[in-house]
Amino acid sequence: EDRKSEGIFETMGIAENLFGGLLAAGREKAWVINQQEMRTLSAEWTKTLNIKAINDNARVVELSGGNQQKVVIGKGLVQQPRIVIFDEPTRGVDVGAIAEIHQIINRLADEGLAVVVISSYLPEIMNLSDRILVCRQGRIVEEFSPAEATEEKIMYAAVH
Rank of each mutant, 00 (worst) to 15 (best):
N67E: 04
K29W: 01
R39L: 04
E142Q: 15
E6N: 15
E111K: 11
V78G: 02
W31Y: 13
V95M: 07
N34I: 03
F86M: 11
A43G: 07
L49M: 09
I101L: 08
L23C: 03
Q35N: 07
T11G: 05
W31I: 12
V93P: 03
N34Y: 00
S5H: 09
E142H: 14
V159H: 10
V117I: 12
L133F: 11
M155I: 13
K29Q: 00
E124N: 05
Q68F: 01
E28N: 07
I105Q: 10
N34H: 09
A15T: 06
L77V: 04
S129N: 01
I51R: 14
F9Q: 04
E111A: 15
N17A: 06
D87G: 05
L113G: 09
V115P: 11
Q80F: 08
R107M: 04
S145C: 01
E111T: 10
L133Q: 13
K70T: 05
F86A: 06
A158K: 05
L22Y: 02
E148L: 05
M12I: 00
I132T: 02
A157G: 04
F19K: 07
A114Q: 13
I85M: 15
T150V: 00
R27T: 04
V134M: 10
L41Q: 07
A99T: 10
E111C: 05
I33L: 10
S42A: 15
P81C: 15
I14W: 01
Q35H: 10
I105P: 12
G138K: 09
M38E: 06
V78K: 12
Q137N: 02
E6V: 14
Q80H: 14
Q69F: 03
A25R: 10
G21N: 09
D56C: 01
E124L: 03
D110A: 13
E10N: 11
K29I: 06
A114D: 13
I85H: 06
E111V: 05
V32P: 00
M155A: 06
Q137L: 06
I140R: 15
V84K: 08
E44L: 11
P146E: 08
S120W: 03
N106M: 11
I105M: 14
P81N: 13
R82E: 15
T40W: 05
S5M: 12
A24N: 13
V159L: 02
L113T: 08
E152D: 07
Q79L: 04
L63A: 00
I51D: 09
E28Q: 13
R107K: 11
A147I: 03
G65R: 05
G92A: 14
E142C: 08
L108H: 08
E37V: 00
Q79T: 05
A109E: 06
E37F: 01
Q35K: 14
K75M: 12
R3S: 12
L122R: 04
G138P: 05
Q36E: 14
Q68D: 04
P123R: 03
E152K: 03
G96E: 10
Q36D: 10
G92K: 14
A147Q: 10
E151D: 07
P89C: 09
T46R: 11
N106I: 02
L122S: 02
G26R: 13
A157Y: 03
N57P: 01
G26C: 10
E111F: 04
Q80W: 08
S64L: 02
